[in-house]
Amino acid sequence: MSLVHGMRACGLAVLLGVLGGCASAPVSVPAMSGDAARPAQASGWIRSELYFAVGNEDGSDRIDEARWREFLDHEVTQRFPDGLTVIDGYGQWRFREEGRLVRQRCKILVVLHEDRAQHRADIEAIRQAWKQATGHESVLWSRQPVEVSF
């Protein structure tokens, strides 16, 4: 199984699951106070999602929780110390040529950050570090503009 396809499977399945629950009416968010480091409301921010394969098709772990936590502490938290979210995910992908369905567990890292070159470089460094540490071929990076309020 190609890990590229596995990451696509995980990312696509989780994305579809998240989007399926997003058909609600807009919610009004009251204005809140902030500080210079964390403004009450800000535009020019990005929501970056990274999808890391951690499990085999048979449900066994390729990357155990201790190894994931070590990676998170050493590669991610140093670059984004102000906060992040990790979601356990599961995805699947069908190889078109073979018709074979691949299923895989994953970790989804969500980071909200200002849209700056340094943050984009940090995200890319995290992706490269994971590929080097695990031998995986791919880490899916999905990003979209967001407005944030703290």
Rank of each mutant, 00 (worst) to 15 (best):
144 Q>S: 11
135 G>P: 06
107 K>W: 04
5 H>K: 13
30 P>E: 12
32 M>I: 15
90 Y>D: 00
14 V>Q: 02
5 H>Y: 07
43 S>I: 13
74 H>G: 03
140 L>T: 05
93 W>L: 01
37 A>E: 10
123 I>K: 02
142 S>E: 04
42 A>I: 11
35 D>T: 12
25 A>I: 15
138 S>M: 09
108 I>R: 09
57 E>R: 13
141 W>I: 11
63 I>F: 05
49 E>W: 04
12 L>A: 10
37 A>N: 11
20 G>Q: 12
85 T>R: 02
34 G>Y: 07
114 E>Y: 06
145 P>Q: 06
38 R>T: 12
7 M>A: 11
39 P>R: 12
45 W>E: 08
85 T>L: 03
11 G>Y: 03
148 V>F: 02
85 T>K: 01
2 S>A: 07
71 F>D: 01
84 L>Q: 00
8 R>I: 10
146 V>A: 04
145 P>Y: 04
37 A>Y: 08
148 V>A: 07
111 V>L: 07
21 G>F: 09
23 A>M: 13
35 D>Y: 10
53 A>V: 14
111 V>W: 01
114 E>K: 15
111 V>Y: 03
56 N>W: 11
77 T>L: 06
33 S>R: 14
147 E>C: 08
46 I>V: 13
90 Y>I: 05
31 A>H: 13
46 I>E: 02
89 G>N: 01
141 W>T: 09
106 C>S: 14
102 V>K: 04
67 R>Y: 04
131 K>A: 06
49 E>T: 09
124 E>V: 06
34 G>L: 11
117 A>V: 15
6 G>Y: 03
30 P>I: 13
94 R>G: 01
12 L>N: 07
52 F>A: 10
71 F>T: 03
52 F>S: 08
106 C>F: 06
44 G>P: 10
5 H>D: 05
97 E>K: 13
70 E>Y: 04
78 Q>A: 05
81 P>T: 01
42 A>E: 11
64 D>H: 09
83 G>S: 00
62 R>L: 15
69 R>E: 10
116 R>K: 15
64 D>E: 08
72 L>V: 03
81 P>H: 00
14 V>H: 05
124 E>D: 08
60 S>R: 13
143 R>T: 12
117 A>N: 11
137 E>F: 05
54 V>Q: 04
16 L>M: 08
30 P>L: 14
95 F>A: 10
